[in-house]
């Protein structure tokens, strides 16, 4: 039994490898992009909207609301990154019920890549928001001796992100395979249903944690919270944010 999809290689061109992880990732990407494109071709801003548009609006609104609640900030800066994380992981895990499909999130390479993206996004958003000095100053609080602990914390939580998602998805797939050989009736189905639920929860956890990490590094929390409480639904304009930060 394969514990990782990376070893399932279809083509190899020198160092370039086309394995199952990449292939299924492309599949999910194609599906998400195609559906988005098909729906956004005929968007309506009136009261009558299609069911697909309604579904996408619910998803996008839900993600924005979650980001707003967690970060206490205007969500649109984080939406493309956090929303894509959530949608990619959720759809990857959701398609697990399709026979022959293996979720790319069951590969540690994928989860490591996603966690690495989060790891990189934290300083990028932080510097963009607070400037280099402001962001780096965060590592020296409350004391300069906290620097190693901050660095360890950054690395360990990134590893935890990757391993948590990988472990949950991979264990679900493995457990399904094992149960299929022990008790071929009923149990695998129940377990797979449970695995679908766990997959959605993991997507949610991954996105929530990524939001927390990015928001905590990029925003002075108290300022952001006050600002969002003062105007919880309206978009915060960039010049206002700059003024607040100054």
């Amino acid at each position: 039994m394969e514990i990782t999809l990376d070893s399932l290689v279809f083509r190899r061109y020198g160092p370039v490898v086309l394995n199952a992880t990449i292939l299924y990732t492309w599949l999910v990407m194609a599906l998400l992009t195609l559906v988005s494109w098909l729906v956004s071709r005929r968007l309506s801003s009136g009261p009558e909207i299609s069911r697909a548009q309604n579904l996408l609006e619910v998803v996008v609104s839900g993600v924005r609301d979650q980001i707003r609640q967690i970060s206490q900030e205007a969500p649109d800066r984080y939406l493309p990154f956090i929303g894509t994380l959530y949608l990619f992981i959720a759809v990857s895990n959701l398609l697990a019920f399709v026979p022959g499909y293996h979720p790319p999130t069951g590969s540690l390479s994928t989860t490591a890549a996603l966690a690495g993206c989060v790891f990189m996004a934290v300083p990028l958003y932080g510097i963009a928001q607070r400037g280099l000095g402001g962001f780096l100053g965060h590592y020296f609080r409350p004391s300069v001796f906290m620097l190693p602990f901050h660095i360890i914390s950054e690395i360990s939580r990134t590893l935890a992100l990757a391993v948590r998602l990988f472990g949950n998805v991979m264990s679900g797939v493995l457990l399904g395979g094992i149960l299929l050989s022990i008790a071929p009736l009923f149990f695998p189905i129940i377990l797979q249903a449970l695995e679908l639920l766990i997959g959605q929860i993991q997507a949610f956890i991954f996105a929530v944690l990524a939001t927390l990490y990015i928001a905590s590094a990029s925003q002075a929390h108290e300022e952001g919270r006050q600002r969002v409480l003062a105007d919880s639904t309206e978009e915060i304009k960039p010049n206002q944010q700059e003024g607040m930060n100054a």
Partner: peptide, 10 residues
């Protein structure tokens, strides 16, 4: 468990 090319590709 980790294929670094795959990580980069992902």
């Amino acid at each position: 468990l980790v294929d670094w090319f795959t990580v980069a590709a992902q």
